[in-house]
């Protein structure tokens, strides 16, 4: 009997992926990501988490290996997805990069890129849930860090991406903003069955939001497991040491 998580369809499949920067090399021998799951990436700084995220968003090509997404395979030699595939993926980075325009223009920017009509009724729940209703006319340059990150998340969600990649989006935010963002992302994943990959340095956050958790260290995957398993009885000794705080970074 398959668990609920295992029964979900595969969105990404990575095989033999290598990204070599000389002094640092990321190797992913095998990794599958599923639809509707929140996949948390844990690991020390420099482990390769952000590099993996850039690969998943096709922002950087691997040196070798292949990646399958939504049934289409992309080899390292031809790592250029069709625009409609590229437009089903997005990343929210740690430092929100907003256009020097009003908040509303930032939020609807992805729709304009896609020449989609701006459906206010569809956007309003996202805006309200993220507490942005009162600042839509404000210039983005005047926002606080928490507001800017909520705008960045709203902008990422308005076009209902099939894949949402989060590169430490709540680092340096206060608990209230963290709670808003976590709530939004978890409900989005459940409602849209999108694949969420969430880089975090916060084990408690991974426990709160993750379905599966992956530990990366020195460019290699140490362990991938359900959060229940990884936080109670990890398979790998390095994972145990990391979670106990024995690996300093």
């Amino acid at each position: 009997m398959l668990s609920q998580l295992e029964a979900r369809g595969v969105s990404y499949s990575l095989q033999g992926i290598v990204k070599d920067y000389g002094e640092f090399r990321l190797t992913v021998e095998q990794l599958e990501l599923r639809e509707g799951e929140i996949f948390c990436l844990l690991g020390p700084s420099g482990a390769g988490k952000s590099t993996l995220l850039r690969l998943l968003n096709f922002l950087t090509p691997p040196d070798s290996g292949k990646m399958t997404l939504f049934g289409r395979t992309y080899l390292s030699s031809n790592f250029t997805p069709e625009l409609q595939i590229m437009r089903q993926i997005t990343t929210v980075f740690q430092r929100p990069a907003l256009l020097n325009e009003r908040v509303w223009n930032n939020i609807v920017y992805p729709l304009k890129l896609r020449r989609q009509a701006v459906d206010k009724a569809a956007i309003t729940p996202i805006i309200e849930r993220l507490g942005l209703s009162g600042i839509l006319d404000q210039p983005a340059a005047t926002l606080s860090g928490g507001e800017a990150q909520r705008v960045a998340l709203a902008r990422a969600l308005v076009f209902s991406p099939k894949v949402l990649l989060l590169d430490e989006p709540t680092a340096n935010l206060d608990p209230e903003n963290i709670a808003i963002i976590e709530g939004m992302v978890t409900s989005y994943a459940a409602e849209h069955r999108s694949t969420i990959v969430w880089i975090t340095h916060n084990q408690f956050q991974a426990r709160r939001v993750g379905d599966r958790v992956c530990l990366l260290e020195k460019g290699r995957i140490i362990e991938v497991n359900s959060k229940e398993k990884i936080f109670s009885d990890p398979d790998n000794q390095r994972t145990r040491e990391f979670l106990c705080g024995d690996i300093l970074y």
Partner: peptide
């Protein structure tokens, strides 16, 4: 123009031309 913004625009689905236009606007 902030390089992170350009990377973000690409990640939002902007083509190179659209990202370039956004950079000129910025």
């Amino acid at each position: 123009v902030d390089r992170n913004l350009l990377r973000q625009l690409r990640a939002l689905g902007a083509t190179k031309l659209q990202a370039s236009w956004a950079a000129i606007r910025e």
